[in-house]
């Protein structure tokens, strides 16, 4: 019965005060959580800058690695090698991932799509070293040598499911009405898919693809026995190629102070590289496709 009775004014103000206290408390809690979520990034960045800035100099970017005991030396071949590997990986991973994602979005209900989606999820959950072994078995062993191609292939394998699922999600976000408008206007099905649906979803897909590139840029395990690494300058696709993560790994686990300092520098360069790639590509996307994902302004 008391529940039905109107609360007195005192009860009401008390309840209000309690709600307000609880509200402020929860605000502080989520605020702290939000802060904590970015703390690791800030710590890592600070650590890298402090540790890596010491070795950074113009020659660090232009010089090849120096032997232990010799001061100086750089990661020029590692930067170039990483870019080559990312290029190969993108050439393999992007078209396949994009096509697969488009297929999953457009024919999502077929049995094949269900199987592909499931296997793609399995692939993205596969430890990256296993992908490296696969590339070794498939390319390195038959060809008899480590190669940039094998490394790029391994990274590409990792990219495929990332790009595919992101593409599928972005394409699904495009309203059916938009596709119908294209069909009604006389677009063939594939043209409406490519010119309307895919292009509308493109900003999201590009962002996702960049995340995929950034993700594989730091992969070390799949490169250990594919790209293998080299202290020399090489851009040949059929030879071992240097890569920043491999250099960082080699330097960081070495017993030489010089090299360990270089590892910090390499890590800083790697992070900067990933950052630059995403900033450039994002800017390109934004200038071309503007507020493509924005909604209509009200009247």
């Amino acid at each position: 019965m008391s529940a039905l009775a109107a609360p007195s004014r005192v009860q009401r103000t008390e309840r209000m005060a309690r709600r307000r206290r609880m509200g402020s408390f929860m605000t502080v809690v989520v605020w702290c959580a939000a802060l904590l979520s970015v703390v690791p990034l800030i710590l890592i960045a600070a650590h890298l800058i402090i540790g890596g800035a010491r070795v950074l100099s113009p020659t660090f970017f232009t010089a090849l690695p120096a032997p232990p005991g010799v001061s100086g030396g750089g990661v020029a071949n590692g930067v170039a090698g990483t870019l080559v590997l990312l290029g190969i990986a993108s050439v393999i991973g992007m078209p396949i991932g994009l096509g697969a994602g488009l297929y999953l979005a457009e024919h999502g209900r077929t049995r094949l799509a269900t199987i592909v989606r499931y296997l793609s999820d399995v692939l993205s959950g596969l430890p990256s070293i296993v992908v490296g072994i696969f590339a070794w078995e498939l390319i390195v062993r038959p060809s008899g040598q480590f190669s940039a191609l094998a490394g790029g292939f391994a990274l590409g394998m990792i990219m495929i499911p990332l790009v595919a699922r992101a593409t599928e999600e972005m394409v699904r976000l495009v309203p059916v009405a938009l596709r119908e408008a294209a069909l009604a206007l006389g677009f063939t099905r594939w043209r409406s898919s490519l010119q309307i649906v895919l292009r509308t979803a493109l900003p999201g897909i590009v962002t996702a693809a960049l995340v995929a590139v950034a993700r594989v840029a730091g992969e070390t395990a799949p490169l250990l026995f594919t790209a293998f690494g080299t202290p020399f300058w090489s851009l040949r696709l059929d030879r071992p190629i240097a890569a920043l993560p491999l250099q960082i790994y080699n330097y960081a686990t070495s017993p030489y102070d010089d090299w360990r300092a270089q590892a910090w520098g390499g890590a800083l360069v790697l992070i900067a590289l990933v950052l630059v790639i995403s900033i450039i590509a994002r800017r390109v996307t934004r200038s071309r496709f503007g507020a493509a994902t924005g909604g209509a302004r009200g009247d």
Binding site: P175, L178, E180, A181, A182, A184, G186, I196, A292
Partner: peptide, 18 residues
């Protein structure tokens, strides 16, 4: 060809954002 000869406007505005 049939669709090209017939105009169609849907309930919600559908300009192509791209």
């Amino acid at each position: 060809a049939v669709r090209r000869s017939i105009g169609f406007v849907a309930q919600r505005p559908t300009p192509f954002p791209s």
